[in-house]
Design a protein around this nucleic acid. Sequence first.
DNA 1: GAGTGGTCTAGACCACGAG
DNA 2: TCGTGGTCTAGACCACTCA
Lengths: 247, 247
Amino acid sequence: MCVARYQQVADSIRGQIADGTLSAGDRLPTEPELVDEYAVSRLTVRHALDVLQAEGLVEKFHGRGTFVRRPPQRVAYVSACSDGLPQPQAENVEIETYVRPGSVLAEAPLTALMQVERGTELAEYLYFSRRDKRPYSLARIHVPLDLAELLDTPTARLPWGAEIPHGLQAAGVRLAHITERVTTRPPTQDEADHLNLPAGATVLEVERTSVDDRGRVVEGAQLVAPQDRIEVVFSKALPGSEGGDLR
Amino acid sequence: MCVARYQQVADSIRGQIADGTLSAGDRLPTEPELVDEYAVSRLTVRHALDVLQAEGLVEKFHGRGTFVRRPPQRVAYVSACSDGLPQPQAENVEIETYVRPGSVLAEAPLTALMQVERGTELAEYLYFSRRDKRPYSLARIHVPLDLAELLDTPTARLPWGAEIPHGLQAAGVRLAHITERVTTRPPTQDEADHLNLPAGATVLEVERTSVDDRGRVVEGAQLVAPQDRIEVVFSKALPGSEGGDLR
DNA sequence: GAGTGGTCTAGACCACGAG
DNA sequence: TCGTGGTCTAGACCACTCA
């Protein structure tokens, strides 16, 4: 067998998307129709569509059909560590963000991020954003209770809660260090529900911690978004001409 | 149907991995054995294993069997933009890196990264690294030809070619800005071959550009690794106590 | 209720890897 | 050569969406 049948079917549909025969938002033929069209079994058609879905080219909806996705159009998360870059953000993409303040008792992963004892009460800001009317990102930002009192109730402008470290700084907290860590992983059940993710999806996570000049973690953020809808950008201006070493 | 059969099978195997009944490197029962064990069809067994493979818990090898993967153990790419962090890197992980210097004529994606005309000749350093004897990461670093002459032949110490911007700086190039962009995407055919990736895998890509004080792109790097084997870390020391604004 | 994708069966043959 | 996973068929029933 030179090329698997399901790959041939996938290639054919991929080509139709590439050359415009099928364009963003269009519904593909139904699975039974594709079975007739390509003279293969339904499993083979499904396998082909699964491949295309994994590639992010199409999206399947139970009971509705399979649709061509918009080209990726990622939203940039510009690192809090960056110099010189504005937060350009969502040019033509509409993103609405909601914040919900509250508090939680620190549990397993949070204790490590915030470097606190299990059970410590922390202020929590839950950011939930939608893009094109659909769930897009989730951010959980935690701040020690005593510092949270210094903050104004945040008005969400960006889905990642960049105003929190700014607010802390404005309130007199002396930030010494910001660190960000980018990984991908399968979503938790909770995240999959909120973000409406299909089975097998992967999220990209940014963990951010802000540390003050006494070494205390004053903010810990966990941002989660579909891996193919986001990019993370870091930028650094190097001091002077040649004096500065890279790190 | 409360929970799909394939999910029940996946849950069961996931549990055995979690509780140590199956441990890293073990071979799972063969598909026909699992068919008997769970009294389901082979497709259902395969579906369950596909889910586990997508989660990174197992790895299937045609003709050999299905094996429990080691826990993720990601390697950190520490941003060139970072302050204060050493390149800690591979503590107990053995990574061998090879470099192959050469040159290429700029094509489609490279022209944008390096901001040069199509067809411009660029020096190219190909980094290929292995971890545990298996392909791990791929980095392509490009430098304008005239600047490449200033560089010593690189001796690869890290898979991401961090020595290239350092070498440029040591050679008197006045770097003004470094920018990094992190995304995930499906691998190219070439990348899938070199990294030995299964179908449907996703890679994490870091694009790095170094710009000199006249705005010229003096280095462009494209690093690619399996998305579940790498993490990207950025860190920034904030100036003074309170004078510095975040960006 | 009609039509969509999601799950599942019981078979079959093929391609790869190792002894 | 043999056992492994990879592909494929032709059917069946279920769950979700929407008119």
